[in-house]
Simulated assay, not measured.
Amino acid sequence: MGVAIRAAEESDRDLVVRLLDTAFQDDPVSRWIFPEDEYRRTTHHKLMAAFTDIVLADGRVDLTEDGTACALWLPMPAEEHGEDGGDGDDGPAQMRASIDPANERIELVARLTEGVHPVGRAHEYLWMIGVSPDHQGEGLGTALIGSVLDRCDREGLPAYLEASSARSRGLYERLGFTLLDRPLALPDGPQMWPMWREPRP
């Protein structure tokens, strides 16, 4: 199946946020961060907006032409997630403060995923991929990821992600990702699977 993909622009921001908000409403990690249904419906989009803004500024958002799926990628230099740089920048705390200061899980999940993020080698980081619920199972996610993995293979770059559900983990395994060490267990919550993919010749 041919899937037309383009790089999202700033004018696509609201579309990307709505798409991620819809796609992740029932995701196990989203349900852990925002456990009450009404709270999730009214607040979850703020977290998706924060992610979108970070990646539009520092990475790349790939979007299907029909607006039904998107992937957020960040290029990660070697040692990007090492010790604190001493500049006082505390992204997880700032994110919590801007979204919902009373929700410590927003900050906690960011700190936990930062803690397992591999260092030492430059790589592409698939932060999120969202497919509209009525278009899941059509191969859109595979197409979005595959286009970047092809480039990674050509350039000799590994790729990394954290799968947030068993279903997504299965997709990533089919694309060549393998579990790094062990799953990340959120306190009183679901597991996440840090996964790594070496470039293929």
Rank of each mutant, 00 (worst) to 15 (best):
residue 2 G to C: 09
residue 3 V to N: 00
residue 8 A to P: 01
residue 9 E to P: 01
residue 11 S to A: 08
residue 13 R to V: 12
residue 17 V to C: 12
residue 17 V to I: 10
residue 17 V to L: 14
residue 19 L to H: 05
residue 23 A to I: 13
residue 24 F to S: 05
residue 27 D to E: 14
residue 28 P to K: 06
residue 29 V to R: 00
residue 30 S to P: 06
residue 32 W to C: 11
residue 33 I to R: 07
residue 33 I to C: 11
residue 33 I to M: 13
residue 35 P to W: 06
residue 36 E to R: 13
residue 39 Y to C: 01
residue 43 T to K: 13
residue 45 H to R: 14
residue 46 K to R: 14
residue 47 L to H: 06
residue 48 M to N: 15
residue 52 T to N: 12
residue 52 T to I: 11
residue 53 D to E: 11
residue 53 D to H: 04
residue 55 V to M: 00
residue 56 L to E: 03
residue 57 A to R: 03
residue 57 A to N: 03
residue 58 D to S: 04
residue 60 R to Y: 00
residue 62 D to H: 01
residue 62 D to K: 04
residue 65 E to L: 04
residue 66 D to M: 06
residue 67 G to C: 08
residue 68 T to D: 15
residue 69 A to N: 12
residue 72 L to T: 09
residue 75 P to K: 01
residue 77 P to I: 06
residue 80 E to S: 02
residue 80 E to A: 13
residue 81 H to K: 11
residue 85 G to T: 12
residue 86 G to A: 14
residue 86 G to F: 07
residue 87 D to Q: 05
residue 87 D to N: 14
residue 88 G to I: 05
residue 88 G to Q: 06
residue 88 G to W: 05
residue 89 D to K: 02
residue 89 D to V: 15
residue 89 D to P: 00
residue 93 A to M: 02
residue 96 R to E: 06
residue 97 A to R: 13
residue 98 S to N: 07
residue 101 P to M: 07
residue 103 N to M: 13
residue 103 N to A: 12
residue 104 E to S: 13
residue 110 A to I: 10
residue 110 A to W: 03
residue 110 A to V: 02
residue 116 V to K: 07
residue 118 P to H: 07
residue 120 G to C: 14
residue 122 A to W: 03
residue 125 Y to T: 01
residue 127 W to D: 03
residue 128 M to F: 08
residue 130 G to P: 00
residue 131 V to P: 00
residue 131 V to Y: 07
residue 133 P to L: 09
residue 134 D to Y: 02
residue 135 H to V: 06
residue 139 G to M: 09
residue 139 G to D: 15
residue 139 G to W: 03
residue 142 T to E: 14
residue 143 A to E: 01
residue 144 L to A: 14
residue 150 D to E: 12
residue 154 R to Q: 04
residue 156 G to K: 14
residue 157 L to Q: 04
residue 158 P to H: 11
residue 159 A to H: 08
residue 161 L to V: 02
residue 166 A to S: 14
residue 167 R to E: 01
residue 167 R to L: 12
residue 169 R to I: 05
residue 169 R to K: 15
residue 169 R to P: 00
residue 171 L to M: 13
residue 175 L to F: 10
residue 176 G to T: 03
residue 176 G to E: 02
residue 179 L to Q: 14
residue 180 L to E: 08
residue 180 L to R: 12
residue 182 R to N: 02
residue 182 R to V: 07
residue 184 L to H: 00
residue 185 A to E: 10
residue 187 P to F: 14
residue 188 D to H: 12
residue 190 P to W: 11
residue 191 Q to K: 12
residue 192 M to Q: 10
residue 192 M to H: 07
residue 192 M to T: 15
residue 193 W to G: 01
residue 194 P to A: 05
residue 196 W to H: 01
residue 197 R to L: 04
residue 198 E to I: 04
residue 198 E to K: 11
residue 199 P to F: 10
residue 201 P to T: 13
